[in-house]
């Protein structure tokens, strides 16, 4: 089946692929490099690639200007909390649809997904008013619930497709073995679905981390995550490229690192379990 490939051909493939990979990655690389330059070097003509005086000054300035750790903590709390909450609600729902399907299962699934198409801006004001009335504005709890709700359909769908791959006979065996529904889900289904759940969690942490409509519109100072942190650099003073780069790097670094370390699960997650 595998056929011998000439070294020449392989070298050519490698060259093309690496070049394309480099071009796609370049904006991120350039941002990271610029974050270590001085402001003058950042706008040097011609652009300086590697040979400049590396400095950490920008990071110090950014940290001083805005309390990075607080934004970071909010991002972690919001992304982690909303995903965890979503998983807790989605696992039973996905179990139902995958293992006790009815005629309406497909419709329910599609309807859930269609709620994701609801334009956020169309319902921004009522939500805003509701948040004011409930005292949830600029609170982590309120935003966490919103992020959970907007990602819930995706979480359910992903878990559903993963659960579908688990043979129903195994769950029936557990039932015959005397497992209660709780045991069945906790000791049999969940451990078997761990890779799928991990992928789901990863993808949704990323989606929640990067969500930039509700996080910008429903927070002020207290609950603002990194999306808001970076948005504060969009004002003209953000034109200081080096500081903008440092702030950008700080905003994306945690998720970039997480993503790279868990690449395998993530790729699985990215395909929404629907492509094999």
């Amino acid at each position: 089946m595998a056929r011998a490939v000439t070294t020449q051909r392989k070298t050519l493939n490698t060259l093309i692929a690496w070049s394309i990979g480099f071009v796609i990655f370049f904006p991120i690389l350039w941002t990271i490099l610029t974050s270590f330059k001085t402001e003058a070097q950042a706008i040097n003509d011609p652009p300086l690639f590697l040979f400049f005086d590396w400095t950490l000054e920008n990071y110090a300035v950014v940290q001083e200007r805005s309390n990075y750790m607080r934004f970071l903590w909010n991002s972690i709390f919001l992304a982690g909390g909303s995903t965890l909450l979503g998983i807790i609600i989605a696992v039973p729902a996905a179990w139902s649809m995958a293992f006790v399907p009815s005629n309406r299962t497909k419709d329910i699934l599609m309807w859930m997904l269609s709620t994701k198409m609801l334009p956020a801006v169309g319902v921004l004001y009522p939500i805003y008013i509701g948040f004011v009335k409930l005292g949830l504005l600029d609170s982590r709890l309120g935003l966490m619930i919103i992020l959970m709700l907007i990602n819930l359909p995706i979480i359910i769908w992903m878990l559903y497709t993963y659960f579908k791959e688990i043979p129903g006979e195994i769950l029936e065996a557990a039932r015959m073995d005397g497992a209660s529904l709780k045991d069945e889900i906790l000791y049999v289904l969940t451990p078997m679905a761990i890779p799928g759940i991990a992928s789901t969690v990863l993808l949704n942490v990323i989606l929640a981390w990067n969500e930039a409509f509700w996080t910008l519109n429903l927070t002020a100072a207290k609950a603002a995550p990194l999306t808001a942190f970076i948005a504060s650099y969009s004002s003209p003073e953000g034109l200081f490229f080096a500081k903008l780069s440092a702030a950008s790097t700080m905003a994306i670094a945690p998720i970039l690192i997480l993503g790279w370390f868990s690449q395998k699960q993530l790729v699985r997650g990215l395909t929404f379990g629907a492509v094999k």
Partner: peptide, 21 residues
């Protein structure tokens, strides 16, 4: 009665073993 309460044991076509145990 629920399956577990019937005192019966079943061997499935696919064996239905728990792969993680």
């Amino acid at each position: 009665l629920a399956p577990a309460k019937r005192g019966l044991a079943m061997v499935f076509q696919s064996y239905a073993l728990y792969p993680h145990m």
